[in-house]
Each structure stands twice: as C-alpha cells, then as structure tokens.
Amino acid sequence: MSTLPETARIPAGAAPVRVAAAPATASTADVPVEAEEVAFDIRNFSMWYGQRQALQEITIKISARKVTAIIGPSGCGKSTFLRSLNRMHDLTPGTRLEGTLRHFGNDLYGPGIDATAVRRRVGMVFQKSNPFPTMSIADNVLVGLRLNGMRDRSVLQERLEQSLRMAALWDEVKDLLNRPGTSLSGGQQQRLCIARSLAVQPDTLLMDEPCSALDPIATAKIEDLIQTLREKYTVVIVTHNMQQAARCSDRTAFFYMGRLIEFDNTRKIFTNPSNPQTEAYVSGRFG
C-alpha cells in the first residue's frame, strides 16, 4: 500500500480515456485519446490546506455531456477535487494550488477570472439539501437569476417551470410554488436545489454526494434525473456509494490519498480495473 506512486501508473494507451496519475507520464496526456469535447482539462493540479497537501499532481480530462463519478475512501481528496472545479476553495483561507485547470479552454484560476462568473457556469449541489429557508419554492429556484439582474416576469416564469421540470419536480410542486422550500421532503428539497442550480443555466453541474442523506426511493429519483441531465450538462458526481457510480456514470475516477489512481470507463473500472488498488477498492477489500 505504501508504494502507491508506482502502482498508480496506468500503462499508456491501455484505456480509451486514460490519464496519468504520476508526473512522469504527464506529458503523454497531451495527446487526445478520444474525439470527445473536453469540459475540464486538468494538468498537474495540486492543492494544499495550509501545510497539508490534499491533492497531488492530478491530471485528468473530463468529457463534456458525460457523467463522471469520483470514488474513493473518506479523506482521499475527492470532495476537495470537486470543489476546486468551481473555485469553492476561494472561501477557505490558507489554501494554495499549483498546476492548471481549464474549463472549456478557460483557465479557471488564471488572472482576471472572476470566481462568481465561474460558479455561474459550474453549478453545485451539496451533500445536504440547503434551500434558503426564508424563500418560497419559486423564489428558491429563481434566486440565482434574480441575482444576475433578470426582472422580466415571463422569462422568470418560463425558467421556473423549465428548471423544475428538468429537476423532475414540477409535477409535485406546481401547485405549491409559494410554499416555503423547506416544507418539502428531503428528496424533494435536494431536487429543488438541483433546479436552483439549473435555473442559472450552467453548462456543468457538480454534485457532492447528493444522495447520502436520502432514502432509496429518493435516491433512485435523483439517479434517474442524472441520466437525463447528461444530455445537456457535464455532470461530475462524488459518491461513497459504488453501486451508484456503477449505475449512473459513464466514467469513473478512483482517488486515493490525494492522488488519481485510475480513470476509465465505468464498466471497465468495475469489471476489469487496470490497477490492483482500484480492484481492491471496488471489490470492497478496503476503504
């Protein structure tokens, strides 16, 4: 286990989408393996909380309009990685980073890039549903649009319905739009939060263990929803639940101790992983 950097290497060209985990192979990652549009092009990305390094030289290409799952044991850096994709770490004092992180060609941490503009394009759904308690269901969905200065009532009305439909919540709440967002059940609240993220029309949605507080039925609804979101959005989902990753993602990345161990098609990760550590994790032998 301690020889992790050695085992972390994946043979070049072994996988349809492959990314080097160690700096030694980083240069070969320049060659696009597939013709898919790349949403996130991340190279040698490292990050520190104070003295502690949380991410080590992550190099990965996340395809647009696919669902990418990030799995790994607690503390492996998967949430940290996810939150670096929309600059949520800007809010935590004492963080430091190296490497580049491009989103559709834009260097997200480059000079002159406004974090609020980044977050409008890269939305986020959290582990625990967090609707604004003083706002109605409609206001919760529209708050982001209103922040952007949208006042046109017909547009707001249209976007409200569209977002709630997209989040598979419209039929359940269309007659309750003025009720407080917190009056909904846990699963509905989480879908409300998804609708809220979608209303500002991002191109990417980050989900940080979105089902960990939900019962199986609510979880199934969110997973179905993720399937439909894939048509329009790039989805990156962090999950503790390997069945969930297997069920609803196209690609899976396995993180361990701040490193990207393996990244490949989900089917391959779960049936025939290249790396023994990945195999040990997905078969439940550790983590």
């Binding site: 609020t116 409008r120 986020m124 959290f126 967090n130 604004f132 982001g144």
Partner: peptide
C-alpha cells in the same frame, strides 16, 4: 452550507450576505 449555496449560484460576497 447556506453561504455555500449562494456562492455556488455565482453570488458575490454582498449578495451572499443578503440572500
């Protein structure tokens, strides 16, 4: 989590305080 919800929508610092 409330603050993060607002930040994730692209709110500025002042907007986060408000909403």
């Amino acid at each position: 989590l409330q603050r993060e919800a607002a930040y994730a929508l692209g709110a500025t610092r002042w907007e986060v305080l408000r909403i």
